[in-house]
Amino acid sequence: MTANTLPFGIGVGERRALVAFLVRKSGSEMLAEDIAHDAIIRLVEFQSREKVRNSKALLFKIAVNLLINHQRRENRTVEGVTDEFVDERPTQDRAALDSDRLAQLQRAIDALPPLRREVLVRRRLENQSYEEIGRALNLSSAAVEKHVVRALASLRAYQDKHVFEGVSPW
């Protein structure tokens, strides 16, 4: 791909940085190239419909989303059943990335207001209904839902903010 086929704001240097980032995340150069290519095409489509100020940040975000979807799809192919020869334990690289994500999410959760955090724990971890949570914490169901929504939005905002900080935010 030459520089003039790249979307506005994205040069060869950005593309190279993206591929390097994806190689770190996925451990596969071929996969990184595929996803970078796909992400750039999506960025062009995106920019045809939305005004974007920081196309580089958006490019990375689109790529991260593609990578997550790819990994989820891969997990799904072995989701039904795997035989005993398949080792489920993650490779060392994957394990390191997972523990980084875990630590990042823990920080993001710690930053939530206590009540909101409690609501999220009850909803997502303990799978309580809005009614159950409302009864336990003396809130209306609508208020419980608002807490879940805001907690999730805060976690997403935290992830976005920290994508480029530190070594491996994802």
């Binding site: 994500r101 959760i109 997403r156 992830q159």
Partner: peptide
């Protein structure tokens, strides 16, 4: 992105 985060087992582990 929000959907993947919500479904992520890393999130339950962190919680």
């Amino acid at each position: 992105l929000a959907d993947s985060l919500y479904a992520d087992e890393t999130l339950t582990a962190a919680l």
